[in-house]
Structure formats: structure tokens, C-alpha cells
């Protein structure tokens, strides 16, 4: 096997994990309960819905990690967006007399719009003030968290709006609307990362900041846009969260921050920057969703999921390190 074949296999590792997991759960379901796991459309839909929010966070995080940064604030940006969209959708109907459809649209857009604030502040701290991403976004983690709980008044914010519920739980030809939205965003992000200057410069910045600067790339503006994109993805995830549960909650994204980083890393991106792909991140998010849903399905103590996800992360990083030693970084093309 040449290095080409080896690197292809390493690139596909998240997909290989995914297939192995599906085989494992299928076998277990068959042997233990005499039922099918993958053959059951309900399971597939549930996994899809389950994966949507962490995937949306992970898609934005992919750009950040490729640029050799990290965004710790996306979980609470998501919570902030969830609370704001629920409030605005309610206000739209109660105070402005909007019909439910318009109130729903206004609510979702407000959730996305409010995410611009943490995104721009993160970008400004990191790009202009040269604060390390870990510190700058950790500060924003606290600020977004506090703001989300304050706006929510310390409680969840229920929404009664049938259109909201439809976006979060409806299906078109049996496919959950959340999954359709996620697929559209996946294609958009893949296009951005692999086919635009923005994506190309993100890779260059992650590999060598000096190279990016000397090539005349506006590194400050690029950094701003990367953190803004991560926040907007989190904003969308928050807006869709309040649609799915017809309630906004400040802690909506709290457990998803680590899942999002894990998805990107399992997907083959390196925390040192310069490599990663959208396809890998999608597979990484599916791996996590299948582990979490599958363990519940086969009736194993839910705590095993933490162990399983942890093991997969460690294996991924080990594969990444040996691949780097052999070949250097990989990218989308």
C-alpha cells in the first residue's frame, strides 16, 4: 500500500467508525432482541434529529479548528439564540399581532441575528486584540451563558406556535425538516470550505499565519468572519432547538460544546490547525449520535456513551498523529 491509499483510509476513518458502529448495533439488536437497528426508519430519523444540533455547532467549529483556533462559546451562544427566538416568536404574536408563520420566521431570524453579537466580539478579541482564542471564547462562554439565563429569567421559555412546532418536528416525505435544514447547511459549508477563497485562506491561516500574512491575506478580517460563522451556526442550532422543543432554554447547548469539538476531531481535523473537512465532521457527528442513540436502544446504562465517545476521540487523535507524521495535513478539494 502506498501513502496515497493509507491517507485515503485515514481520511475515511470517521466513516469507517460509523460503519463499524452500525454493524455492532445491528448485530446486538439481532442477537439480543431479534430486531433490526438500521432497518428501522424510526431509528434513522431519530439519529438524524439527534445529530442536528451538535452537527450545526460542529460545522462552524470546523472552520475555527482548521484556522488553528477554538470556540468554547458556541454552546451558550446556542442557548442565547434559543431563548431569544422563543421570546421574539411569542412577542411577535402577543404584542405585534403577527400571524404564527411570520412570528415563527421572526423568532428564528432573531435567534440567528443575536448570535452575531458573540461572534463579532469573539472575532474582535482574537483578530484585533490578539487574545488567544481559548481565553477570548472562554470569556464569551460566561457572558453568553449569563445573558441567556437573564433573558430567560432563569426558566425555560415556552412557545405556543404551531408553525414553530412544525419546523422542529414536521416531516416532508418522511424526512424530518430539521434533517433537511441540516443537509442544506452541510452543502453550503462544504462549498464555503472547499470552493471559496474564504475556505482556502482558512486552511492557510491554520497552517501558517506568516504565510497568510505575507500573501497579502487580510488575516484580521478572515479571523472575524470565521468566528462570526461559528456563532451563526450556533444561532441556527439554538433557533431550531426552540422549534424542536417549542421552548427556549439557556442551557440548550451546554452539553453540546464538547460533542461539537469531538465531532470535528473524530472527523479528522487537527487541533493544531490546517486540516479538516466538512465530510469528516458530518461523519464525526453521526458517530457520536449513533453511539448515544444506539446505547439507549440496546438498553445499556447510558453512562457507557461517555466512555465510548471518549475512546473514539482518543483513537481518532492517535490516527491523526501518526498520519501527520507520515504525510502532513489533509484538506478538502
Amino acid at each position: 500500500m502506498g501513502p496515497g491509499v493509507l491517507s485515503r483510509i485515514a481520511d475515511l476513518r470517521a466513516w469507517i467508525f460509523l460503519v463499524l458502529l452500525l454493524i455492532f448495533f445491528e448485530t446486538w439488536a439481532n442477537v439480543a432482541y431479534g430486531v433490526t437497528f438500521i432497518g428501522n426508519t424510526y431509528n434513522l430519523q431519530s439519529i438524524g434529529i439527534f445529530a442536528t444540533a451538535p452537527l450545526l455547532l460542529a460545522l462552524g467549529q470546523t472552520f475555527v479548528i482548521i484556522s488553528a483556533g477554538i470556540d468554547l462559546s458556541v454552546g451558550f451562544t446556542m442557548g442565547l439564540a434559543a431563548v431569544v427566538s422563543a421570546h421574539v416568536a411569542n412577542l411577535g404574536m402577543s404584542h405585534f399581532g403577527l400571524n404564527p408563520l411570520l412570528a415563527m420566521l421572526l423568532g428564528l431570524l432573531s435567534g440567528i441575528a443575536v448570535a452575531f453579537i458573540p461572534g463579532l466580539v469573539n472575532g474582535w478579541l482574537i483578530a484585533r486584540l490578539r487574545v488567544p482564542p481559548f481565553i477570548g471564547t472562554l470569556g464569551m462562554y460566561g457572558i453568553a451563558r449569563g445573558a441567556a439565563f437573564l433573558i430567560a429569567g432563569g426558566m425555560t421559555v415556552p412557545v405556543s406556535n404551531e408553525w414553530f412546532a412544525y419546523i422542529g418536528n414536521g416531516r416532508i416525505y418522511g424526512v424530518p425538516i430539521l434533517v433537511i435544514i441540516a443537509v442544506v447547511v452541510i452543502f453550503l459549508m462544504h462549498y464555503l470550505l472547499s470552493q471559496t477563497k474564504f475556505g482556502q485562506h482558512t486552511y492557510a491561516l491554520g497552517a501558517s499565519r506568516v504565510a497568510a500574512v505575507r500573501s497579502g491575506i487580510n488575516v484580521g478580517g478572515l479571523t472575524m468572519r470565521i468566528y462570526l460563522l461559528a456563532a451563526v451556526c450556533a444561532g441556527l442550532a439554538g433557533a431550531l432547538y426552540s422549534a424542536r422543543f417549542t421552548a427556549g432554554a439557556a442551557q440548550a447547548g451546554e452539553p453540546l460544546l464538547l460533542s461539537s469539538i469531538a465531532a470535528v476531531v473524530i472527523g479528522g481535523a487537527s487541533l493544531f490547525g490546517g486540516s479538516g473537512t466538512i465530510a469528516g465532521t458530518v461523519a464525526g457527528a453521526l458517530v457520536i449520535a449513533v453511539i448515544e442513540y444506539g446505547l439507549v436502544f440496546i438498553n445499556v446504562e447510558p453512562f457507557w456513551q461517555f466512555i465510548a465517545v471518549g475512546v473514539v476521540i482518543i483513537i481518532s487523535v492517535l490516527v491523526d498523529q501518526s498520519q501527520r507524521k507520515l504525510l502532513g495535513g489533509r484538506q478538502d478539494d
Binding site: Y203, G206, A207, A211, S215, G216, G329
Partner: peptide, 17 residues
């Protein structure tokens, strides 16, 4: 000052793709 993860062509055109 090369971007090590990019191809020769991508490095030649970096910033002017």
C-alpha cells in the same frame, strides 16, 4: 512562508486564487 497543507498551485496563488 509556505502553507504546508496546501498544494504547490494553491501556494502560488495564495491570496489571489
Amino acid at each position: 512562508a509556505l502553507a504546508d497543507n496546501l498544494s504547490i498551485g494553491a501556494n502560488i496563488f495564495l491570496g489571489r486564487e
